[in-house]
Design a binder for these strands. Sequence first.
DNA 1: ATGAAAGCGCTAACAC
DNA 2: GTGTTAGCGCTTTCAT
Lengths: 335, 335
Amino acid sequence: MAATMKDIARRTGLGLATISSYFNGGNVREKNRIKIEEAIEELHYEVNEVARGLKTNATKTVGVVIPELNNVFCAEIISGMEDILRSHGYAAIVCDCRTDKKLEKEAVDFLTRKRVDGIINMPVDMTGAHLNEFQKTGKPIVLIDRMIQGISCDCVLVDNVNAAEKAVGMLVEQQHQKIGLIGGPDEVFTARQRMLGYMKALKDHGIAVDEKLICHGDYTIQGGVQAVEELVKENPDMTAVFVTNYEMTMGAVIGLNEMGVSMPEEISLVGFDNLPFARACRPALTIVSQPTEKIARETAQIMLERLEGREELPDHIVRKLQTDIFMGKSIRRQG
Amino acid sequence: MAATMKDIARRTGLGLATISSYFNGGNVREKNRIKIEEAIEELHYEVNEVARGLKTNATKTVGVVIPELNNVFCAEIISGMEDILRSHGYAAIVCDCRTDKKLEKEAVDFLTRKRVDGIINMPVDMTGAHLNEFQKTGKPIVLIDRMIQGISCDCVLVDNVNAAEKAVGMLVEQQHQKIGLIGGPDEVFTARQRMLGYMKALKDHGIAVDEKLICHGDYTIQGGVQAVEELVKENPDMTAVFVTNYEMTMGAVIGLNEMGVSMPEEISLVGFDNLPFARACRPALTIVSQPTEKIARETAQIMLERLEGREELPDHIVRKLQTDIFMGKSIRRQG
DNA sequence: ATGAAAGCGCTAACAC
DNA sequence: GTGTTAGCGCTTTCAT
C-alpha cells in the first residue's frame, strides 16, 4: 500500500494537521519542514487526491464530452485545453460519444457520478436535456462551438455565418453562380449557421438559392464523398462547391479525384479546416480556417475562472471568434 | 448538495448496509427494492464514485499518456480505447505530454496522485524511468507501440520492421534503386524499427545503403516538408521516397507540391497511415496502414483483464500486429 | 435480509 | 505553530 499522511506523522513524530498544513501552504517550522520532506522522500509519499476530493468536495477533474475524438477539429481543441487544465492541476476525463445523443447523456451521467468539478461539452445537437441534471449541481458547464436551447451557460463560439459568407462571397467574386453546398446535419448548430451564411451571401449578390445545389452531409469523410458525387451528377452546370467541415472537405476531394473531375478546371472548391491538408492537396485548397487554439484557450480559461475565480463573473459568458481564409488555388475565375 | 446513501436510508427507513447492498448486486427484499428505487428517483441520487473509490482503493479510472493527441494515429487509438473502457465503467484521463520527456514524467506522477487503477502509455522514447514509481504500486501498465528498456510490462506493438520492409520492397520491385528514407527521431522505438526494415529490404535486394538518402525527421508535418526538400536537393538521382509516419507523409506531399516536383513522375512515394488522406491525394498515395482499431481494442482488453480478470495471466503479454498496404498510384515503374 | 459501526486518507475546526 | 478530533460518503465485517 502507498504511504499516507499518517505514516508521515508517525515517522516525524508530528501531528496530522501539521503535515496537512505543510501540503496546503501553511506555516511549518523550518526544522519540521525538513523532517517532513525527508519522510516524503523515504516513503515515496504522494498525496491521495481521491481522499482529498472526498473531503473538499472537489475532484480537480473536469469532464470533456465531444462528438468525435477522431476528428481533427475536436482533437486539436482537446489537446489545447488539456494542456492548460493540467498545468493548473486539473485532469480531463475525455468522453467521445460518437455523435450519439444517448451516449452523450450517458457520458454526462457518468461524469456526474465521478463528481467532476465541471463539464466542457461540444453538444451533438441543439437540445440540452442531457445536461439538465448536471446543471442542478451548480457546477460550471462550458459549451464549445454549438449553442443549445434552454440551457444558459458559458459558451465559446465561432462566427460561422460570417465564415460561410466570406467563403461563398469569394466564389461569387470569381463569377461563380451555380455554387453547390455540402452542408452538415440539420440538427447541428454550426451546420445551420454555415448554411445561413451561404444563403446570405447568395442573396446579397442577387443569386437565387437553388435547392438542388444544397446537399446535407453528415460531417464524415464518406458523407463528403457521396455528397460531391451526387451534386456533380445532378448539376451539370455547377461550377463550384463550398464544403462545410474538414472531414467532408477531404471526402469531396476524394470524390472529385475518383470521379476524375478536375479541380479547379471543372469544379472550384472552398473547404473547411485543417491547413496542412489544404496545403497537401494539389492544387492547394482554399479553405476557411477556424482558430482551434484560441477556442481551446478561451474555453479552458473560462472553466478555470468559474472553478477558481472570483465570483464577479457575468451570468454567462459568450465568446464569439472569427475565422480566417487560407488562399489556395482551388478557385478558378469563371466566364 | 447532492443526495447521499444516508438520505436514502433515512427516507426509506432502511439501514445503510441495505442500500449499499442494493447497489452492489446483493439480495434485497422486493418491497425494499421498490422503496429504494423510489427514493433514488425522488432525490436524483447518483453514486459518489469518489467516496467509493476511497473505500475500495479503486477509482475505476485509467490514465492514458501519449506524446501528441493532435496526431491522428494517437487520436484514433484513444478514441477506440476510451469507448471500450467507458463501456466497462472506466474513465480515461488523457494526458498529452507534447513529446516532452519531462512532461511525460509529470503526467505519470499526476496520475499516480489521482490514484488511477492503471496506466496506458505510448512512450516518448525508449527509456522508462518515468514509470518506475508508478510500477511500484503494483498497478498495471500497458505500453502501446513502443517498447521500453528496463520495464517489463504488457505491450501492444506493430511489426514495424516488416511494415517498412514490405514498403521498400515494393519500390525495389518497381526497379527503384535510389530510395530516400524520411525516418523518425532516433530515440523513438518505432522509428528505429522502420529504419531497420528499410535497410533490411535494401540489403536483401543487394542495394547498398547510402547515408545521404537517409533523413531523420521529427514525426511532424513541418519536419516532413523540410526532410523532403533536403533529400530532393541533395540527391538529384533519387527516384523514390519512403516516409515513415503520417504527419511527415503529409509534409512530404506538401513539400513536393510546393517545390513543383511531380509525383510519381519525378519522385515515387510510399507513405504511412491515414487511408482517407492517401485517397484524397492526387494521385492517391500508396501507404502502409496500421491497424489502429485493433491496437485500441487489444490494449483496452489487456488493461481490463489486468484490472478485473483472473490472475492466471502471463507475466507480461506482448502482442504484435501486422500492417497492411494500401495501393495507390504514387509509385511509378522505373527504367 | 438487515442494522450498527468501523474506517478508507484527507481537511478543517478548535484548543493549546 | 502544532495536536486532537470529527466527518466527507461509501463498503464491509459482524451481529441479529
